[in-house]
Amino acid sequence: MNSLRELFGYPFMVNALQAGTIVAVVSASMGWFMVLRRQTFAGHTLSIVGFPGAAGAILLGISPAFGYFGFCAVAALLIGAADPRAGTTTYRQESALIGTVQAMALASGFLFVSLYHGNLNGLTGLLFGSFLGITRGQVLTLLAVGAGALVGLAIIARPLLFASVDPEVAAAAGLPVRALSLGFLLLLAVAVAETAQITGALLVFALLVLPPATAQTITGRPAFGLGLSVTLAMVVTWAGLVAAYYTPYPTGAFITTFSFAAYALARGTRWLAERSRSTRPVIASEVPG
């Protein structure tokens, strides 16, 4: 108990916990739609393009923030140009296009880093973040951008869900399916670009995909699933930060491991439940509500 109080006594730890909470809420909400829309690969690519963006910006001597936002936005527009949900391309073409964007992004990132003969410590920071060196100002910026992205998501939430599940009917009902798709990718890009600056490109992806995938394994209710996804993300982030405080190992590794454990547990439980259901006669069907 004493040592927990000690933990909250350090400003850097308080900043880390606050930043982690914001990142968890934003990533888990965006990620819930991303997983539902089968856009995990797009989300992964958006998380990664922040790396060449930041490296390029450092090379040019401008703020890495411009690189993060610029590259993520351009990647979102490129990916959104071939959207199978709007019926103009197939899912196969989409994933191939995203793959080429990601390959090119990674290649240019490494090129930028090697062109910039500065310290290579930056590379680890770009990929894995620096959770424990967060300033007050960064927390506030993160809060502003995260809140903005969440408000945007809340506004388009229902039409986006409609367009994700049933694009044809949504279009027939007069919804702008293509614009919704592009809007979501841009919101995702903004959220990822801001988050990746703190958590690094790899951890933001873990929080984007693991808690939502776990929640969707557990429940098919949209509101409950979103809430569960956010709760899971917050719990693993706090647990990861605390674990990293008491050990010499990196925060991101703990957060990802805890998320993965939750996901594996959910999948395993569901597999067992489905197996026992298929071997036993059905006693009571599930009650809708």
């Binding site: 506004i155 229902r158 039409p159 409609f162 599940v165 949504a170 009902a173 007069g174 209710r221 699933g225």
Partner: peptide, 25 residues
């Protein structure tokens, strides 16, 4: 529907009712 789609039947029906409304319910 995609076999892995984790959304209940009632939610799919609900989309027909207010799926085109902006904002959260």
């Amino acid at each position: 529907f995609d076999q892995s789609l984790r959304l209940r039947g009632v939610d799919v029906v609900r989309l027909g009712f207010d799926g085109r409304r902006w904002g959260v319910p």
